[in-house]
Amino acid sequence: MIEWMNWTPTVAIFFAVIACILLTMTVYEVVSPCTERKGFLPISTTRGDRLFIGLLSAAYIHLAFLAVSDITLWVALAVSVAWLLVLLRWG
């Protein structure tokens, strides 16, 4: 039934991690709802907005690394995570 999806462990882990992040954020949101605020980003954002911006820019960071260098993607991942945390805290 799902052989055609050609699951590989890496992709499975990737989606599991995304799902976990979303779940955590949802629970966090239910426990303590957040309000919009203005950080260093030019628009006022909620926690979820910042997460989305972080994830989207993480995707672009990875692509940029692939496009211009041969450095291992773990570096890109580290940069993305750091950026995501900065964004969530001060964005």
């Binding site: 949802t26 949101e29 239910v30 909620t46 979820g48 907005d49 989305f52």
Partner: peptide, 9 residues
């Protein structure tokens, strides 16, 4: 509700 804006987007 939780995640309404993001669901919409």
């Amino acid at each position: 509700f939780v995640g309404d804006k993001h669901l919409f987007f």
